[in-house]
């Protein structure tokens, strides 16, 4: 089942196209890695999918009951003020505001869902701590829990491993793998080739002279894939 379809779309800022004639689709259960050099259109793509900037031409279509405002988005951690006073629970609960209709406070169901998310991501013990007291890996899990409060169907992660130490990175990736294994569709922007090698099913590669979208196996046989591998220090056998 398709969740997101873009057919021959052109995306960019203020009339300046960054990626032209892009065709891609996201199916339920996919694990898609979005790679490419800086300035090639990764963040433009993320913003377009989130509906923060409209495509210059064409339309990104949502289907299968997915709505644009119910994408579980994990922004880059650097975008968040590190000294912001906020408890873990406050952050995770705020993820469900997109479907929140009560006048005051959160409902009992919303609070129960928040507890479930915290347990699922192994951070139930941190619920009353402040965000600023957490390690980078713990902060990322909190933001992941918040994203899953918004939706349990599709997660869009923007460079989630940036600034994490190798162990926290490995833990985060295995967490994302297991979420994908439980049926959550994952789209992840990354600099790191390893998740692309291991877990991803499809690759969306942006470069200044076009893009690649397709299954992982095809990608690593393609010219773009081989260049990417070489740059990352992996010889292709």
């Amino acid at each position: 089942m398709n969740l997101i379809i873009g057919n021959d779309i052109t995306i960019g800022y203020e009339g300046e196209p960054v990626v032209s004639h892009l065709t891609f689709s996201v199916e339920s259960g996919d694990y898609i890695c979005i790679v490419g050099e800086n300035g090639s259109g990764k963040s433009t793509f993320v913003k377009s999918v989130l509906g923060l900037i409209p495509p210059l031409s064409g339309k990104i279509v949502f289907s299968g009951g997915l709505r644009q405002d119910s994408i579980g988005y994990l922004p880059q951690r650097s975008a968040i003020q590190q000294d912001f006073p906020s408890s873990v629970t406050e952050i995770v609960l705020s993820g469900c505001l997109n479907r929140h209709h009560r006048l005051f406070g959160y409902s009992r169901e919303e609070k129960a869902r928040c507890r479930t998310m915290l347990e699922r991501l192994g951070i139930a013990g941190l619920s009353s701590l402040s965000f600023q007291e957490l390690s980078g890996g713990q902060q990322q899990r909190v933001l992941l829990a918040r994203a899953m409060m918004a939706t349990e169907r599709l997660l869009l992660l923007d460079e989630p491993a940036t600034g994490l130490d190798p162990q926290a990175t490995a833990e985060l990736y295995s967490m994302i793998d297991s979420l994908n294994g439980s049926g959550i569709t994952v789209m992840m922007v990354t600099h790191d080739i390893h998740p692309a090698l291991n877990a991803a099913g499809k690759i969306l590669h942006f470069s200044h002279d076009g893009y690649f979208f397709g299954p992982k196996d095809e990608y690593f046989k393609s010219e773009k894939g081989m260049t990417f591998m070489k740059e990352a220090g992996h010889d292709h056998h």
Partner: peptide, 23 residues
């Protein structure tokens, strides 16, 4: 302030996420 407390909090803490989820 009290009615929109959570929304004001969410748009203060992380405007990008808030916007992306339709606030």
């Amino acid at each position: 302030y009290l009615v929109f407390y959570h929304q004001i909090y969410a748009t203060t803490f992380d405007p990008a996420f808030a916007k992306a989820t339709g606030l």
